[in-house]
């Protein structure tokens, strides 16, 4: 038991905690910005795919299929190693945001397309009959109904993004898992049981991710129930 307490105390020192939670901040920041951006781009792509002319539709389909059929990790690595980010965004974190935005936009586009399909065609006709033109009908009539029906799917995607930001640990972006691994591999004196340390840190990492994602997935479940009722 004393061994456990010693290991526990060696993990959760004040500086370690600050370091890990700063990583968590970056994780959440990257996830939030990527999700917001990809909701915008995803909606545009979905509109292109559903209502665009041949060129826009072709572009949108090509983009979505490209990103949906290649691994996220590939884009994380490729963008981190091959693209130099311009000046105000040259912190490593921004290359993470770029790769997640590119990838998640394709997923969001598919989700929004599903939502657009679920809006009855009569809504368009009703809007036209009231003198709405196409853009106004989309913005004021179709999209609001579409978004209401896809909130659960979008939130599920947010969970996926939060989990997948752990990939960024692989390219030395200082997010939560990266920093936790640093704490794990830090030199400590030999009296402390390293096995326990490793298990404590893995447990801590799992619990933190779990709390965040479980909270979100509970929201998803209750929204789904409400929609089904």
């Amino acid at each position: 038991m004393n061994e456990f307490i010693a290991a526990f105390e060696s993990v959760f020192t004040k500086s370690n905690l600050i370091y890990m939670f700063r990583g968590l901040g970056i994780t959440l920041y990257v996830a939030l910005i990527s999700v917001l951006l990809s909701m915008v781009f995803g909606t545009i792509l979905a509109l292109f795919r559903s209502y665009g002319n041949k060129v826009l539709k072709g572009f949108s389909i090509a983009y979505i299929e490209l990103f949906r059929n290649t691994p996220n990790l590939l884009w994380v690595l490729a963008i981190r190693f091959m693209i130099r980010m311009p000046k105000p965004f040259d912190a490593p974190m921004y290359s993470g945001i770029l790769s997640f935005t590119l990838f998640t936009s394709a997923v969001m586009a598919e989700i929004v397309r599903g939502g657009l399909n679920s809006v009855p065609k009569g809504q368009f006709e009703a809007a036209y009959s009231q003198g709405f033109n196409f853009p106004r009908a989309v913005v004021h009539i179709i999209l609001p109904q579409c978004f209401r029906s896809i909130v659960p799917s979008m939130l599920s995607q947010v969970i996926t993004v939060i989990k997948d930001t752990s990939f960024l640990a692989q390219v030395a972006i200082e997010e939560f898992f990266n920093n936790s691994k640093w704490v794990m591999s830090a030199q400590i004196d030999s009296t402390i049981n390293q096995t326990m340390r490793v298990f404590i840190i893995f447990g801590f990492v799992a619990v933190i991710y779990f709390i965040i994602n479980f909270a979100l997935s509970s929201v998803v479940r209750s929204r789904k129930k409400k929609q089904a009722a």
């Binding site: 969970i159 989990k163 997948d164 752990s166 990939f167 640990a169 692989q170 898992f177 893995f202 990492v205 799992a206 991710y209 779990f210 994602n213 479980f214 997935s217």
Partner: peptide, 10 residues
């Protein structure tokens, strides 16, 4: 819940 809410990488 456990496997859906923690990252695969972890």
């Amino acid at each position: 819940e456990f496997f859906q809410n923690t990252p695969l990488l972890v």
